[in-house]
């Protein structure tokens, strides 16, 4: 089979990336539930629904990005690839994706904090008016 190393690379890459995305988003939104309830001031049904919607968005963005960067460039189909090259290419892709995922996680955390601060300021203002 010509160029089976690239296919092996894909077979290693895809499960790692998808598992990582699912794990991280499960964790993020399990912990984000509290923030959401805080932001919506205890209206639990809206908070949980928003949380679910954000989770779906997170899945879509990250798995989409992972598939988008999957293609291994620059190797013609009859080139015999060594194990070392395969490992280096995979490390670049998986490491890059992991850093991207970490940055996305921090970005979501930042959004949570911002929402919490905003809703808190709003509450104090309304209580002052009342």
């Amino acid at each position: 089979m010509e160029n089976s190393k690239i296919i092996i690379g894909y077979i290693i890459y895809l499960p790692i990336v998808i598992f990582l995305t699912i794990y991280v988003s499960k964790l993020l939104f399990k912990n984000g539930r509290l923030f959401m309830i805080d932001i919506f001031r205890g209206k639990e049904d809206i908070a949980l629904a928003t949380n679910k919607l954000f989770e779906i968005g997170f899945y879509l963005i990250n798995i989409g990005f992972a598939l988008y960067i999957m293609k291994i460039y620059g190797y013609s189909s009859n080139y015999e690839m060594s194990n070392q090259t395969l490992m280096e290419i995979l490390s670049k892709k998986i490491g890059g994706f992991t850093i991207y995922l970490g940055i996305m996680l921090f970005f979501n955390l930042f959004l949570f904090f911002r929402g919490r601060k905003k809703s808190r300021r709003f509450t104090t203002k309304t209580t002052k008016v009342i």
């Binding site: 993020l28 490992m87 280096e88 490491g95 992991t98 850093i99 995922l101 940055i103 955390l109």
Partner: peptide
């Protein structure tokens, strides 16, 4: 929950960087 999220973020970014250095060895 904040602490958990910070830990996961730390793991992702740092281990990602550690893995990516292999590509430039």
């Amino acid at each position: 929950s904040i602490n958990n999220l910070l830990l996961i973020g730390y793991y992702l970014t740092n281990i990602g960087y550690a893995i990516i250095t292999i590509a430039y060895w």
